[in-house]
Simulated assay, not measured.
Amino acid sequence: MLTQRGNRFWTYEESLRFLGVELGRIMSVMKLSSGGLFVQSPAELTPELKTALEELGEVRFVAPASKLHGHLYMEQYRAAYPDATLLAAPGLPARRPDLRFDHVLGDTPDPRWGTDIDQVVVAGHRWLTELAFFHRPSRTLILGDVGFHVGDDSPLKTRLVARALRIRNRLGPPIELRLTIQNEATFRRSIRDVLAWEFDRVVPGHGEIIDSGGQQALLEGYDWLLE
């Protein structure tokens, strides 16, 4: 159900099909020094998942990656955990007027989770502003749509599409996102801020987790931007 991958860090993977292609999506769960749970890109809150989460601790914070990624089931967490803080990425409150958000995320982590988790706003794209997170205790970088990683274990159709989108065995965004960057200098600065973290593992928004060597994988995946 939940896979422990590092110190106070777990992931949960579920199916996600887009235009007939299996992309998958990954939820990250971090146990804070204070004892509560920080849930990023929440998955569908099935009874089994709810039980698994409650065995780890109390869900206190629920965060998406962007206004497009990781918000689909946030209403389930609001209903199940009314005392939890629902966090929004830039632009998400307008996209989800059905939800009451407690805080809009920026570059500065809140002291309530800042001891364990850092964050950077990845800006400069035409329509996508995303939050990248760094979980210090497990040295894990958590991405959304700026970090696809389709490897050899993905379905054949997914691998073929990934090759066309230039994300086959590469950690980075699909080609259409690359071609629609509005401010390349800002986007580059955001990625360099992410690379300043001392991470080893990378949890991509879609695809396969990189359990070690993540720093080099991100450098290689963004060589078109950083060279």
Rank of each mutant, 00 (worst) to 15 (best):
G114E: 02
G213M: 04
T46G: 10
H149V: 09
D107S: 08
D116R: 00
R159K: 13
G144K: 12
P97V: 11
T51C: 09
S190P: 02
G147K: 08
A123D: 02
Y77A: 04
E75A: 15
E22F: 03
Y222M: 00
S15T: 03
E220T: 14
I117A: 01
P174K: 15
T158W: 01
P90V: 04
T51I: 14
D152N: 15
L72H: 13
R192M: 14
G151I: 15
G6N: 13
T3L: 11
D102H: 01
I117H: 02
V104S: 01
T108L: 03
Y77C: 15
A132R: 03
T115G: 06
M27L: 09
G91V: 02
P155A: 06
L86P: 08
S154I: 06
I210D: 00
E58M: 07
P90E: 10
S190A: 08
R168E: 13
M1F: 15
E48A: 12
G207H: 06
E58I: 07
G106T: 12
R100Y: 06
E220V: 14
H206I: 07
E75Q: 14
K67I: 02
L56I: 15
V121E: 01
I167S: 02
P173A: 10
T51H: 07
V21R: 07
R189K: 09
P109R: 01
S15Q: 07
D98N: 13
P64C: 06
P111R: 00
S190H: 01
R95I: 12
S33L: 08
S28W: 10
R17I: 11
V146D: 07
S66W: 00
P90I: 02
R188C: 05
S190M: 03
D98G: 15
V146A: 08
P174T: 10
S15L: 08
G57I: 05
D145T: 10
